[in-house]
Write a protein that binds this DNA or RNA. Structure first.
Length: 450
RNA sequence: GGGGGCGUGGUGUAGUGGUAAACACACUGGCCUGUCAAGCCAGAGAUCGCGGGUUCGAUCCCCGUCGCUCCCGCCA
């Protein structure tokens, strides 16, 4: 077995060899001698001819040899061994993708002798959710698992790119906070130099405060929910794509921006992540120029008429209601998306701006994507006196909110925003049955590792 | 927090109140010159989650327990 002794990346034939080539770049180097680095993804030996599939961080490539000695370094090695393969890039019709490496020179960088707990070289990983999550550190190497998380990166890219183009400034707000963000419940407590602190359940207060600084802000970051929920759509830490901006007319201004952001995310995926989308057979939605919207009360009336279930007067929509509304949006408007506007004030947090023409309802909205809540947003209160009144009405003391209130005391514009759940976006895009499948290392009631 | 379902080799499943268990993939060895979810042959690997009960006998039936999963509540 030949093992690289000094720098694994060093190469004896430095002049002629194109180093640090990715598997996805082979097409650009046909006829040249290149060196790939990666993992031994698969090995197919058929007597007189041998194939190996090398997987790097980007894709896979095949090397072939009719000379037994070329593959000698792989003797006694298991898949997932880390290797480099130097060879001549050849255009061959029968090779996967039409290119492969000939005359391979294989160097073992990190030998592996043990088969991974789940086979990574099959088209699909055949494992249940618990196994997949228990062994996520290796299972996520599988091209199909990896593609999901690459798309997550793409969604964040698209989010940032769209907002940067609209004059937004990216911020990072504290995740350790002194008091519970929006209510007393559902936050994780931690010890902070002898005092109690909490993990932020949302950047809500800080992003509003930062509207007073930058006017238009966004944040990509984790949020923490201590909710004891145990469903396929919930985890206790997830990535929130948050936006907040000033000088709006009402929540429809916010919805219009959200439409641009969602369109920007999917446009980015469509343009730059075709390999992942194809691999996962993703069904990309088309975002209508104007996303249809329906008022909360009208939505309940619609459910009563279409399905004979009387949810009128309920303070919120159930998951079943949302699925029904999603179907309706598809049938009636041909849209994967639907805004539900005007949720009752009673179900929304105290900073929510009421609908002045009907104060029982709010200037807020949810965006449903294929029948599941993807985004929540709305217009916020912006006058100091309104905040004092709202806190009073909610039975909350103003003292814990002193920092927050100070921003309003000194002048804030009409503003609003929203928060997109990143993992939900991917789950709905890919039609997956469990949010944990789109979460790198999920945190739920049972799971704190890996 | 409430309700339902499930726990069988590394992984995914099948199965039966009676000699402790079948199949596929992975794994090991052999064969194979164009594989690409490779193929063929052979092999190793499971005290059927744990504890108790019923029974002549339990992987199977009952109870408890632990774990997992789905739905609801709540949310993104």
């Amino acid at each position: 077995m030949e093992i690289a002794n000094q720098s694994p990346m060093s190469n004896p034939q430095k002049e002629k060899v194109m180093n640090n080539i990715r598997t996805t770049e082979l097409q650009q180097h046909i006829g040249k001698r290149v060196c790939l680095h990666g993992w031994l993804h698969n090995l197919r030996q058929m007597g007189g001819i041998r194939f190996l599939v090398l997987r790097d961080g980007y894709g896979t490539a095949q090397a072939v040899s009719e000379n037994e000695a070329d593959f000698a370094p792989l003797a006694n090695l298991a898949l997932e061994s880390v290797i480099s393969v130097e060879g001549i890039v050849a255009q061959t019709p029968q090779a996967p993708g039409g290119v492969e490496l000939h005359e391979p020179h294989i160097v073992v960088i990190t030998p592996n002798s043990e088969a991974p707990p789940v086979a990574l070289h099959k088209k699909e990983i055949k494992a249940g959710l618990p196994i997949l999550l228990d062994h996520a550190v290796v299972a996520n190497r599988h091209p199909a698992r990896r593609a999901i998380f690459r798309l997550a990166a793409g969604a964040m890219n698209g989010f940032r790119h769209t907002l940067n183009g609209l004059g937004f400034t990216e911020i990072q707000t504290p995740k350790m906070v002194a008091s519970a963000t929006e209510s007393g419940a559902n936050v994780f407590e931690l010890s902070y130099f002898g005092r109690s602190a909490y993990l932020a359940q949302s950047p809500q207060f800080y992003k509003q405060i930062m509207v007073g600084v930058f006017e238009r802000v966004y944040e990509v970051g984790p949020v923490f929910r201590a909710e004891p929920h145990d469903t396929s759509r919930h985890v206790n830490e997830y990535v929130s794509l948050d936006v907040e901006f000033g000088f709006i007319e009402n929540h429809f201004t916010v919805m219009a921006l959200l439409r641009e952001v969602v369109a920007g995310i999917f446009a980015t995926l469509a343009e730059q992540y075709t390999a992942e989308l194809t691999l996962l057979q993703a069904n990309l939605p088309t975002v209508p120029p104007t996303i249809p919207h329906i008022h909360f009360a009208a939505a309940q009336e619609l459910i009563w008429q279409r399905h004979g279930v009387d949810v009128r007067g309920e303070p919120d929509l159930s998951p079943q209601d949302e699925r029904w509304l999603g179907e309706w949006a598809q049938q009636e408007h041909g849209s994967d998306f639907l805004f539900v506007t005007g949720y009752p004030m009673g179900k929304r947090p105290f900073y929510t701006h009421p609908d002045l023409s009907n104060p029982a309802y709010s200037n807020s909205f949810d965006l449903l994507f294929r029948g599941t809540e993807l985004v929540t947003g709305g217009q916020r209160l912006h006058r100091y006196s309104d905040y004092l009144a709202a806190l009073n009405k909610a039975g909350l003391p103003s003292e814990p909110f002193a920092t927050y209130l100070e921003a309003f005391r000194y002048g804030m514009p009409p503003h609003g925003g929203f928060a997109i759940g990143l993992e939900r976006l991917l789950m709905q895009l890919l039609g997956l049955p469990n949010l944990r499948l789109t979460t790198l290392f999920p945190r739920d009631m049972q799971r704190l590792a890996p």
